[in-house]
């Protein structure tokens, strides 16, 4: 009906005057409102950038104070004892790498296997049960998993092959691994589900078994998503704090170790333990600033990982 009305309107006597640019102009009030809306969104975008910049600035400023004033011999020493002026960064880096490595050893086979099962083998009804359960696992607060790692994994799993049945890097690593399983499963399952079914049909039409189709067609076609899921998982594992803080077995200080079943302090756990006692820390030499230095090292790690990840994913991506 509106169209006929408009047609009548155009043809009606009062609009017979010459057609001008005003007929096609936007209502000024509406135009102003549009500008205001665009402005609101611009402010929100700028705010998040400003906050990131502020964080980076704080991090760099305090870390700079540390780096300028520290005796660099103490940064390569026997362990991490910030209150005594011993800031052995390798203790923390090695501990972080060990927990992350163990976490990935646990999470990669379990997460990828679950993703393959869900995407290629599971009956739709089974999938509709398992997927929500996995999402519940993803929703477990890391503090809860931290206590699970300390009170169950440490004595029952790590304690079964070592004398240390309290907190250890291995227990923390397994806990972090459990935490990242749903992440790997969910992202790589999405990547595999996005592989067109025409490729599976092509493979099966050639007489390929399901396993050959999965390993030789679906996985290579989804490889960029799978690698992305693993890299996100590494980022998550290296940045994970609560589980390693609770289950790592060391509080605030740690002697250097590269043995997974011993207690250890990761970069994140060192920061958390130190940060939770900040009021005591302030004023004791560079102890407070060392926290920012560790933060900067961690930041460099995750940033580097993300850069490598995006390069790698772009390079091996198989387009379909």
């Amino acid at each position: 009906m509106t169209t006929t009305q408009q047609v009548q309107h155009v043809n009606s006597p009062e609009t017979k005057q010459p057609f001008t640019v005003e007929d096609l102009q936007m209502n000024p009030a509406r135009s102003n409102r549009q500008k205001a809306i665009a402005g609101v969104f611009a402010v929100t975008a700028v705010t998040s950038i400003a906050i990131s910049g502020l964080i980076l600035w704080t991090l760099l400023a305090e870390a700079w104070v540390f780096m300028v004033n520290v005796d660099w011999a103490s940064v390569w020493d026997i362990g991490w004892f910030p209150r005594r002026g011993i800031y052995d960064i390798k203790t923390l880096i090695v501990a972080s790498l060990i927990t992350t490595g163990i976490a990935m050893m646990v999470a990669t086979p379990l997460g990828l296997g679950a993703a393959i099962y869900l995407s290629e083998y599971a009956h739709p009804r089974v999938r509709s049960v398992i997927k929500p359960v996995l999402e519940v696992l993803a929703g477990i607060p890391s503090v809860v998993l931290g206590f699970f790692a300390l009170l169950w994994i440490a004595p029952n799993v790590v304690g079964s092959f070592s004398a240390n049945d309290a907190g250890s890097l291995a227990a923390a690593g397994i806990g972090v691994g459990i935490l990242t399983i749903p992440l790997i499963t969910s992202v790589s399952e999405d990547a595999m589900a996005a592989v067109p079914s025409s490729l599976r049909e092509a493979s099966q039409g050639l007489g390929a078994r399901k396993s050959a189709t999965t390993l030789r067609v679906v996985l290579p076609a989804a490889i960029s998503g799978i690698v992305a899921s693993l890299i996100i998982a590494v980022s998550r594992a290296i940045g994970e704090t609560m589980v390693v803080y609770i289950a790592g077995g060391a509080a605030q200080t740690a002697i250097y170790t590269d043995f997974p079943t011993e207690k250890g302090l990761t970069m994140t756990a060192a920061m958390a333990s130190q940060g939770s006692g900040t009021d005591n820390v302030v004023g004791e030499g560079l102890t407070f600033q060392s926290l920012y230095f560790v933060g900067l090292v961690l930041f460099v790690f995750t940033l580097g990982l993300n850069v490598i990840a995006s390069r790698f994913v772009n390079r091996i991506q198989e387009k379909y």
Binding site: L206, G207, R209
Partner: peptide
């Protein structure tokens, strides 16, 4: 069915080469 499909090839409506 796997053996059947090895003897009886199929070409589909939309070209579906593998991304290889």
């Amino acid at each position: 069915a796997v053996e059947v499909r090895r003897r009886i090839g199929m070409v589909f409506q939309k070209p579906n080469p593998f991304p290889k």
